[in-house]
Amino acid sequence: MADPMTPVRYRVAAKHQETSDTWTLDLRPLAGPIATPRPGQFTMLYAFGRGEIPISVSGLPGEGSPLRHTIRAVGSVSEALCALVPGDEVGVRGPFGTSWGLERAEGRDVVMMAGGIGLAPLRPAVEHVLEHRDSYGRFAVLIGCRTPRDLLFLRQLEAWRGRFDVEVEVTVDSADPGWHGDVGVVTGLLPRIPIDPDNITVMMCGPEVMMRFGARAMIERGVAEADIELSTERNMKCAIGHCGHCQLGPKFICMDGPVFPLPEVGPLLAVRSL
């Protein structure tokens, strides 16, 4: 088995600007690829000479598709990754961490709630449900971001919205008058979704505050905590449970997470004490 600490060399095959500070990189292996990630997992992306950061897989490789990552430039390494151009090399370790409970959710209604860059780790999960549509009940994707300019994956969103078997709702914090969509917080979209508390799985990814409010709103509607999964972020270094960098209470996000059932991390994110 490959050494999990040694990056595998990939080439940037294409680059797509999503928003003013966020880019999606399509990566192809120079030699052997990493193992195929599951939706919700992340890799450690290494910008040579700058450093390495955890980034969720935003598109699974396979059948001609590249390995995709969507990166928001917020600091030294993420800026370096976003500055790469097609042809440049990048190191990839992984995949690491837990994945969304898509098998467990089979036969049930699924609601996914994404805030900002949180749509990136959920995109492979959305695609999985759409590709296995008969295996799931009702399916809704709720997306919130700051302004219409901050929306990720515009073309894909249009395609999802064009389908009759998924309800896609988007809301922004504020907008210019040209915007004809919703304005308000993402939890405000929840009353539109029919919720059968006995038969639903909720998957959330976004800022922790959003997930706290989102989880609380779901619990108020009768959803069991065990049926709510969320993806958490903490700084990471080794990604294999050695360094303790990613610790959240007794959990190591790199090994036990990033996707957790709410009961495991709710108290740490203070969901109940809100």
């Binding site: 805030g115 900002g116 700051r146 914090d173 917080v185 976004g206 800022p207 505050v209």
Partner: peptide
Amino acid sequence: LRLLDIYQA
């Protein structure tokens, strides 16, 4: 929630 400017956080 919006005052927290959560998506920039």
